[in-house]
């Protein structure tokens, strides 16, 4: 029982990070119909920029406390990623707006390689240990179930950001314009919406979330690496598809479900396979889910709401 509860806690933590990343995929897909495969690498840039900023701060401003240093590193990384997201959209995708869908998709993969290569040139091929500014000493929440302060922070920050995003999209003028543009670019422009700006805003918001997720990943696992964005990116994409790509609630639900399945599955895979697989095989769950969803329910759990009658 403790094992199960422990895996649920771990699953929620990982899942909420997947959810944050999945939101970026799903927002861009909703508005452009594009799978932005470079999104995972924005997360990597977020983690490495935060790492670099924190290192520099620790050298040049050692009097700053741990939490302020982390917040400063995070803020710098968020800003850098927002600029990066805007730049990617502006230089790589915008000119392909009316091209066949395959062209921007391949471009996205190209951008992904480009970001990884640049990061490899700057930070090398090694794993960097990420400064542990928050305690990773496990607290015993209930007997036998442990949670670290880093994990608690991840849960709280993710939940806050998700609520903020839902409010932004559903209650503000920008959010209304985003939803209108997602449904019909031409008609949105007839309402006076500068759709290029709205699309840029979508990339900027998604990249900010990816930066936060990147810092969370590195804080949780204690490392950062030029290729660290690949797997979480792919899993978050799976989460977005699982929830129903284009749907914000779906991305959040998909992220949490994926995190839970992976974590619980990873915890029991050894028993289930009679010792044939161990928990390092837990990544297969994401891709089993992706396959099953694509075969049996390509619209995902929450699917596309179809409200067209006329």
């Amino acid at each position: 029982m403790e094992t199960l509860l422990q895996q649920i806690v771990n699953g929620l933590v990982v899942g909420s990070m997947y959810a944050l990343i999945a939101l970026g995929y799903t927002m861009v897909y909703g508005i452009l119909g594009l799978i932005n495969f470079a999104h995972g690498d924005v997360l990597m840039v977020g983690a490495l920029v935060a790492l670099e900023a924190i290192r520099l701060l620790q050298i040049h401003a050692p009097e700053l406390g741990l939490v302020p240093t982390l917040l400063a590193g995070l803020s710098i990384s968020v800003v850098v990623c927002m600029i990066l997201g805007y730049t990617i959209e502006r230089t790589a995708y915008r000119r392909l707006r009316n091209a066949p869908r395959l062209a921007p998709l391949i471009t996205a993969i190209g951008v992904s390689f480009l970001l990884q290569t640049i990061a490899m040139i700057i930070w090398g091929r090694n794993y960097h240990s990420f400064p542990q500014l928050l305690s990773t000493a496990p607290l015993e929440a209930i007997p036998g179930v442990f949670i670290t302060p880093v994990q608690i922070t991840i849960l709280v920050v993710s939940a806050t950001l998700m609520v903020a995003l839902v409010v932004l999209v559903n209650k503000t003028r920008l959010g209304r314009a985003m939803r209108a543009t997602a449904e019909n670019h031409k008609v949105a422009s007839l309402m006076g919406v500068d759709t290029n700006k709205i699309i840029a805003a979508t990339f900027i918001i998604g990249s900010a979330l990816a930066a936060v997720a990147g810092v969370m990943f590195s804080s949780n696992y204690g490392t950062a690496h030029y290729a660290m964005g690949f797997l979480p990116g792919l899993k978050a994409f799976t989460a977005a598809v699982l929830g129903g790509i284009g749907n914000l609630g779906g991305a959040m639900l998909g992220g949490l479900v994926l995190g839970l399945v992976e974590s619980i599955g990873g915890g029991y895979i050894e028993d289930l396979s009679f010792g044939f697989f161990n928990s390092s095989y837990q990544d297969i769950f994401a891709f089993i889910i992706l396959g099953v969803v694509l075969i049996f329910r390509p619209t995902g759990l929450l699917g596309e709401r179809v409200a067209d009658r006329a």
Partner: peptide, 20 residues
């Protein structure tokens, strides 16, 4: 074909008209 935003509410559609 009217170009209604089918996923937005009626009120949100009207407010899109006043976007600027």
């Amino acid at each position: 074909g009217r170009g209604i935003f089918t996923r937005l509410t009626v009120e949100e559609n009207l407010r899109m008209g006043a976007y600027c």
